[in-house]
Design a protein around this nucleic acid. Structure first.
Lengths: 349, 349
DNA sequence: TCATATCCGTGGAACGTTCCAGGATGCGTG
DNA sequence: CACGCATCCTGGAACGTTCCACGGATATGA
């Protein structure tokens, strides 16, 4: 009876570097060197590679990450994957990361803070090398703390942020050109419509652009109308208004600037359901230029922001910071561009 | 001068279980027990929890996974996140996995086999506990091998497969009801249009349903028309045809059954660009019922498959198999339902 | 021939956790 | 008091890799 405790048996245990070493008749270090692409004499290398092939060895990334005390995983906190705005950025970010040898862990936060906090925790427990924050959630104290206490780099994508790195569109400029487009068409009563689907700071900047353009043209800027897609009432300040009445009244807006495309498309739907033609009775401008906006049937005039480019930059910034954590934080804002389509036209009458 | 090699120093090293143990005055095992929720006397537990809080300790999932020789990560191979069909399923799958304590690693394969193979490799190196295959790529030998050699469970989502588990829609039934709908409207010349955006086996089944319905009604089923969205030519067998001529000819189809919604919506665009009204000149039916199809401006008649339900089931099947690898493989096909909207109507004349 | 340099390969420590056998303590019972 | 038992905690081994200092050949130069 052996005193040595039997090695726990497993079904079809995956071969390790030691199995390969034995098979090839070299030390584990040599196998490690081959796998990592370090200098090894050619003859030895092929011997090892053959052994790897015979055994079907796959390096254990978990063990590697464990010993190296760092991972090649990025975490992505994404607001809502079924929203094409996020989906597209998420996709590009994943591709960019993969190209650089990083895998990507996603966490859908669905606009809920507690999920977001749990997601951050989970990502940190998995020791991701960095995080991409790609969400519109209005960050409360708890989430803010969770993010700030995280000892890993964070890049904010689609918005600019005081701390960490960030990549976002030129929101103010975008708000301005959208509004100027409507003014040029002859509109004077233009409303700014805010939906919950946009990040608060970006929203404020877009509104600021709108205000600036209105003021410059001598038109009166209204306060933002809050709108929840799917409903037909809006809130302006404390007052609730019925959308049908608002648009139907003689003093009502002839054009709407909705702060994001998903909201703008939903607004087109709602307006038409209420019997207002777009752009005949009301012109609508969006923001983002998601793929959907370009469909003929939709044809939304919008402010295009280069989603792919931003996602690429975000990953690039993140990797730079991972490589050099001491680097001062960077904030990139990328130019936007008006895309005129068929949801806007001159005001009626 | 000390002979003992100095422990490599790191900036702000994350606290480990040992730091917590020292802080709380207990052994590392006790801390481990607290963290894992094992039985620990209440007094000790609070002492440990306080220490955890003071130090800001976060369990190291990498180390845990390493010692346990298994992870709580699922890999998802997704065809194309910017396609809402996948995005929605991916989102639901991620949520379901997260609820069960699993994190999700995504890999966008973008329809390219070599990316898919590299992605599978990467997921396996990270020792994911299982994989969800959510893509339309036609699997060539190499990818097929990579998947089969993977020693982890795989579930195919959105398609049925001979091996592994799978969850998919009742494709044949769906093809039948879509076709019957058009027949009922009075169409006799109905074409089946295949785009590269659908998984081959699902496509074949939908076509089979179409054929069956046509035969039963005494109409002649054509061979599938291959169509690449964005172009205006189709291939039927070996022959290339111009879409404008095809639809314009007196013997041309009065209705199209496109095998997926993204393709169907693109087809509406193309038809209208070519001057054919939908549904006036040509009726179009899709398959999937993505959110987009329900927009007023699109209003696509389509075969609805419960995407959320399928994604949930796929994760459930995967976790069951992870828990019991010996379980016989399961294939679930879920019922579909015709959703009649405004892209179909009686044939012209 | 010896010293030195170069080239390749090796062995051991370390990473942070889990798991398990067993130790310490306290309590009830014969 | 001795013993058994329950309760609670502990220490060590193991996981698969990387990294580093070192070792043994072989070549080079004096």
């Amino acid at each position: 009876m052996s005193v040595v405790p039997a090695r726990r048996r497993r079904v079809r245990k995956a071969p390790t570097i030691l199995d390969v070493a034995a098979e090839a008749g070299v030390s584990k270090s040599t196998v490690s060197n081959v796998v990592r692409g370090a200098e090894v004499a050619d003859a030895t290398r092929v011997r090892v590679l053959r052994a790897i092939d015979r055994l079907g060895y796959k390096p254990n990334a978990i063990a590697r990450q464990f010993v190296q005390q760092r991972t090649t995983m990025l975490g992505v906190l994404v607001g809502d994957l079924s929203n094409p705005y996020y989906a597209q950025m998420a996709q590009v970010a994943e591709r960019a990361a993969f190209r650089c040898g990083y895998t990507t862990m996603f966490c859908n936060i669905e606009g809920e803070e507690n999920i977001a906090v749990a997601g951050v925790d989970s990502l940190l427990e998995h020791r991701v090398a960095g995080m991409v924050f790609l969400a519109y959630i209005s960050r409360t104290r708890q989430l803010e703390n969770a993010l700030k206490q995280a000892s890993v780099p964070i890049v904010f994508l689609g918005l600019s942020e005081q701390w960490g790195d960030s990549v976002g569109p030129q929101d103010t400029q975008g708000g301005r050109v959208a509004t100027e487009h409507l003014l040029t068409l002859g509109h004077r009563r233009i409303a700014y419509v805010r939906t919950p689907l946009v990040e608060p700071s970006g929203d404020r900047a877009r509104y600021a652009g709108y205000r600036a353009a209105m003021r410059k043209a001598g038109a009166t800027a209204g306060s933002p109308m809050q709108w929840q897609p799917g409903t037909s009432t809006v809130r302006a300040g404390a007052a609730r208004q019925d959308l049908r009445e608002t648009l139907g009244s003689p003093a009502g807006p002839t054009a709407l600037f909705v702060s994001n495309d998903i909201g703008a498309i939903a607004m087109i739907e709602t307006c038409e359901t209420l019997g207002f033609a777009v752009p005949g009775d009301v012109s609508i401008v969006g923001f983002d230029d998601i793929a959907l906006a370009g469909l003929h049937r939709i044809s939304l005039t919008t402010v295009a922001q280069p989603l792919d480019f931003q996602a690429e930059r975000a990953v690039a910034l993140l990797l730079e910071r991972i490589a050099d954590p001491g680097r001062p934080s960077r904030h990139e804002s990328v130019p936007v561009e008006l895309r005129v389509r068929n949801s806007t036209g001159p005001p009626a009458g």
